[in-house]
């Protein structure tokens, strides 16, 4: 049994102030690196947070709306990275093309994997998605044509032709607007998904399969659709990560990213729009600013994951809500 989050009623009643608040938040978000001193570390940390948060949203959709743990999303993350790297280094393609290719490859891979796992639930689903990621890792590691064990170096600056002008970015400062835009797009997409027919149906299938069946919903179709649309989100994050790091290797399959995705989602609580974003920000801040060394970081990441789920299954948001309720 999973706990259903009650939708917090929005405090603003009319749409206008709400739009204003959103715009102000977006503006503050955009200038955040400059507000934090405008140093290269501020830019690189925030760009990384934005990219990783987008990566987590792919897992978030599957975990929050299907109630399944996908251990295979590193596969889509890597597809994004490898697509950007290979197409830009070998064929000199621009950012739009590599992004479109990423989306196409991710959809194809997710469709295949989704179809294979259609009849599996719970841990078997997790195991099979994990198996897929392991096979893909072995392929990427051994196949020299796409990079092999050393990966691909020399990824040029991200080029996005915009009609007359061309955006070109290599440094963290240049990439920040792109990462920020990708994050906003993802947030908008998730917000739209939550209210969409698919989103509500998926939730119904997870919470009350009997009701869903009586309404004539085919749970398999819903599962497949949700899984498939989650893939390009994580994929696009990997796409931008390739340009940020200028190097792509088989390490994109590492469990570091997998655990990051899961922790960021459950830390704040499932089915909260900005949850994964805040979760990612907290985790990256800990690792970059308050790092206690690799072994301690592992202990912290692991205990956060375990403690949150054991003691506050609704995440930090649920905890906060409980506190505020007891006060008033």
């Amino acid at each position: 049994m999973t706990v259903i989050e009650s939708q917090t009623p929005s405090r603003t009643n009319s749409p206008l102030p709400r739009a204003v608040i959103t715009l102000v938040l977006i503006a503050v978000g955009f200038f955040l690196p400059r507000l934090l001193g405008g140093t290269s570390v501020a830019y690189s940390t925030l760009t990384t947070i934005a990219i990783f948060a987008v990566m987590c949203y792919g897992v978030d959709i599957v975990l929050s709306y299907l109630g399944e743990v996908s251990l295979g999303h590193t596969l889509f993350w890597a597809i994004g990275g490898y697509t950007a790297a290979n197409l830009s280094v070998k064929y000199g393609l621009d950012g739009w093309t590599t992004a479109l290719a990423t989306i196409a490859f991710c959809l194809a891979a997710a469709l295949f994997l989704g179809a294979v796992t259609l009849r599996t639930r719970e841990f078997v689903f997790s195991l099979v998605t994990y198996a897929a990621a392991v096979v893909a890792y072995e392929v990427a590691f051994n196949w020299d044509a796409i990079g092999g064990s050393d990966g691909i170096v020399g990824i040029a600056a991200l080029k996005l032709p915009l009609g007359v002008a061309t955006f070109s970015g290599a440094s963290q400062e240049d990439l920040w607007p792109v990462a920020f835009a990708l994050l906003l797009l993802t947030l908008a997409f998730i917000a739209r998904f939550r209210r969409s027919r698919l989103g509500t149906t998926a939730l119904m299938v997870q919470m009350n399969p009997a009701l869903a069946a009586s309404l004539g919903v085919d749970p398999r179709k819903v599962r497949l659709a949700v899984f498939v649309i989650s893939a390009p989100i994580t994929g696009l994050a990997g796409w931008l990560y390739a340009y940020q790091r200028a190097y792509v290797g088989p390490d994109m399959f590492e469990s570091y990213f997998l655990v990051m995705m899961l922790t960021a989602v459950v830390l704040i609580g499932r089915r909260i729009l900005v949850g994964p974003l805040i979760g990612t920000a907290l985790l990256i801040a800990q690792q970059n600013l308050l790092s206690l060394g690799g072994d301690w970081n592992k202990i912290i990441l692991g205990s956060v994951l375990a403690i949150v789920l054991i003691f506050w299954p609704t995440g930090l948001a649920g905890l906060f809500r409980r506190f505020s309720k007891s006060k008033f």
Binding site: D150, V153, I155, R245, Y247, G249, P250, D251
Partner: peptide, 8 residues
């Protein structure tokens, strides 16, 4: 791999 990632 770590060197190649840090180099750029």
């Amino acid at each position: 791999p770590v060197t190649l990632a840090m180099q750029p």
